[in-house]
Amino acid sequence: MTEKPLLKRFPILRVILFIGLALAIVSFIGGSVGAMLRDSSPLGFLATSPPQPELPAEKPFASLFITNTMIASWISILVLFGLFFAATRKMKLIPGGLQNLVEFFCEVAINFINDVAGKKWGKLFFPVCFTIFLFVLTNAWIDLIPGFGTIKMNGLPLLRNANSDINVPLMLAAVSFCFVEYQGFKAKGSSYLKKFFNFGLLACGFRQLFSGRFKNGIKDTFMGTVAVFAGFIEGISELIRVISFTFRLFGNMMAGTIVVMVMIYLVPWVIPSLFYGLEALLGFVQALIFAGLTLGFLTMAVTSEEEAS
């Protein structure tokens, strides 16, 4: 099969590529990097302010506690709700248009979750996992709409990527953590807590120690101490997960924002668009990882060791 190269098949691509390259070179020379090389200030229409990343979410309204990330997350909630509401308002057995699209994505998610967790648990896990996925994804992608961050109110941006406010990842991690612990406790009852507080062997060892069987007693006491310590480690790792969840999402989104900011400062034209593409991919991957890890931990929490092996 001899396929002609893309550039030959669509001659217009060559023109677009040329224009893009020219714009990139112009903005490179005229922008901040070129200014630094030329020992002067950047050209007027290319001058951008140096990146000033702001970690805490800004409060655009002076007297209210509402932050710009809150507004952004409300917008993404409205978008998601509108999408689902429009898709399910007039359900038809033979789907068309929007309903078909939404159903397709739901079906893909259901199949994925059923594959990992099994049909019985998949039905329980699906709403939380898929909602986390959709929320993270929408937050990340809404940020990529051109002009999203440029609307100003009282000199502060009115909208900002909700994932880059540490409260949102922390909130999602907390929801995921609570859901995992709740499902684990519900599935296994009090034996779930034994994973963290494993005093059985230690108590047995002490009893043997006091009743005179020193050799067994010492051995069991030692092993019991190890088991208690292992349970402690288990509990700590469960808490560490929350932090890891939080900082993975927060760091990725913040890094993306900062990279785009820096690129806009260095080369104002064309090049930041490429990083927008990267950001879109990253947002999807992070959403997938957040939901997928939650799903994995849920599955681990509800399946006992006997079942797994």
Partner: peptide
């Protein structure tokens, strides 16, 4: 890659 990258992201944080 996203998992490995997360480590770098911690450093970035």
């Amino acid at each position: 890659i996203a998992f490995a990258e997360a480590i770098a992201i911690y450093a970035f944080v």
